[in-house]
Amino acid sequence: MELTRNRGGKISTGRKRVTEVQETLATQGEWVAHVRRIRDAQDQSAFAELFRHFAPRVKAFLIRSGSDAAMAEECAQEVMATLWHKAHLFDPARASVATWVFTIARNKRIDYLRKQRRPEPEDLYWGPEAEPEQADVISLQQETEQLRSALKVLPKAQRELIEKAYFGDLSHREIAAETGLPLGTIKSRIRLALDRLRHAMK
């Protein structure tokens, strides 16, 4: 499997960035549990975590869809309020929490446009990606585990720099400033680490 560094500074598997894969697999269950805690116990800490994660993403989605910042901010607040009050309507068998949240956002935007008597956009930009096929999820899980194992056997000095560069999203210069290592040393270690990872992931 080919490993590259994309524009966002993450390791890419060629289909999805590893960090995105890990987030999809690791946090979907957490978000479902959070919604259930809100539904069953009006858990404010669970809501706060969902709010911190989704509210800025919903706002950005609405701005990309053509909303001004003020409307996007107001709508994002309404979306999260809907999540709080209607958590009992969420069905994890039908959609992920992200899909549910962005569906609410899309509907809120359409309602707003109707109230403003503006033409509804024919092709409204959709927020989250489509849910992956089960076979793809299993394959991505395996690849993620393979990468995790490969990272563990790297020399500590190389592994720490890979984590800072690809998972911490730091530039080489930022790593140099943080660690005090020469820029050439950082580049050399990262290059050696990537060679090891490519070999392990074949």
Rank of each mutant, 00 (worst) to 15 (best):
D111T: 08
D111Y: 01
D111H: 08
Y112F: 15
L113Y: 12
L113P: 04
L113K: 07
L113Q: 14
R114Y: 03
R114S: 08
R114G: 11
K115F: 04
K115Q: 09
K115A: 10
K115M: 07
K115R: 12
Q116K: 15
Q116N: 07
R117P: 01
R117L: 13
R118A: 11
R118E: 11
P119F: 02
P119V: 02
P119T: 07
E120A: 09
E120M: 08
E120G: 00
E120C: 02
P121E: 08
P121I: 10
P121M: 05
P121F: 07
E122C: 06
D123Y: 11
D123S: 14
D123I: 12
D123F: 15
D123G: 06
L124Q: 08
L124A: 07
L124K: 02
Y125P: 09
W126C: 04
G127D: 04
G127C: 05
P128D: 03
P128L: 02
E129D: 15
E129T: 12
A130S: 08
E131C: 01
E131I: 04
P132C: 02
E133K: 09
E133Q: 10
Q134K: 13
Q134P: 14
Q134D: 14
A135G: 00
A135K: 06
D136C: 01
D136H: 01
D136W: 02
V137N: 01
V137H: 01
V137T: 10
S139Q: 10
S139H: 04
L140Q: 12
L140T: 00
L140H: 09
Q141S: 13
Q142A: 14
Q142H: 13
Q142C: 03
Q142N: 10
Q142V: 05
E143S: 07
T144Y: 07
E145I: 06
E145M: 07
E145K: 11
E145L: 12
Q146K: 12
Q146G: 09
Q146L: 12
Q146N: 10
Q146W: 05
